[in-house]
Amino acid sequence: MRKYLFRRLLQLVPLLIGISLISFFVMHLAPGDPTALFIDPNVKPEELARVRANWGLDQPIYVQYFLWLKNACLLDFGRSYTTGQPVINEIGQRLPVTLLLMAPSFLLTLLITIPLGVISAVRKGSWFDNAVTFLSFAGMAIPTFWLGLMLMLLFSVKLHWFPAVGNIILPLITMTIGSLAGLTRYQRASMLEVLNQDFIRTARAKGLPERVVIFKHALRNALIPTVTILGLTLPDLFGGAFIIETIFAWPGMGRLGVQSIFQRDYPIIMGIVMISALLIIIGNLLADIGYALVDPRIRYEKSK
């Protein structure tokens, strides 16, 4: 296990370098220009060129990249073009605000999705199962940002229950519904699979009460895939954060990200890409480890 962990951590390095390489080049080769926002009849083009040069943007792109990489290895991701502050500080201020939204949403998702998926599977074909299936499809098909708008329309404009922005409830609901649907379908499927397996039939044949069969035997095994997939939903959660935070003006990393895209604040964009990628990879890793812990049959030494 330790050896496996070590190897996985080692794999992180080329992965992160690959990610930084792609995002850096895509960004810097595109026609955009961070000084474009300064345009004003009194600002001469040569002033913009000077500011660009101060930022090092006049150097060949590979030089810029190696400089960035060298500093990034020392955990220095440069400074924001718009605020002049270190990227680490800027993101450090925003990440906790995002987690404040993501963590409860994650928990809520788990609390809702597991019982829904399990009951749905146990009562396969019932009206409850049908309803859950239909709703989870609808949940997957609903554009997150539109869901956010509709919730705003209902709860802020019509009912006046919550303010449209600055309150956690609406973004929390939006984010939770967004991740709920897919997971519920997954949980249902894995529960169904387990229920069809021999040891469940054996347990039933032994005359164990249905409750014991389901909660003690089936559920435990059906949770394994859910644990795995949880790590894999992290990218979606992050993706959702970008849009949801923008709509609800939630001052987290997602909104900072979208804003820095519009401002072409390259250092911030790079920082956010790297941090989210790191979190996503770690999420995957934790999922794999969790998988190994829950299910001792899985041995990593051989796989991959």
Partner: peptide, 24 residues
């Protein structure tokens, strides 16, 4: 497959937004 791993580790909507914001 390593390339696939790299691409999968991106927060994809952010990548799309970033690329798209720089193109016409």
């Amino acid at each position: 497959m390593r390339f696939v791993d790299v691409m999968l580790a991106f927060p994809s909507i952010f990548l799309i937004l970033a690329i798209q914001s720089m193109l016409t």
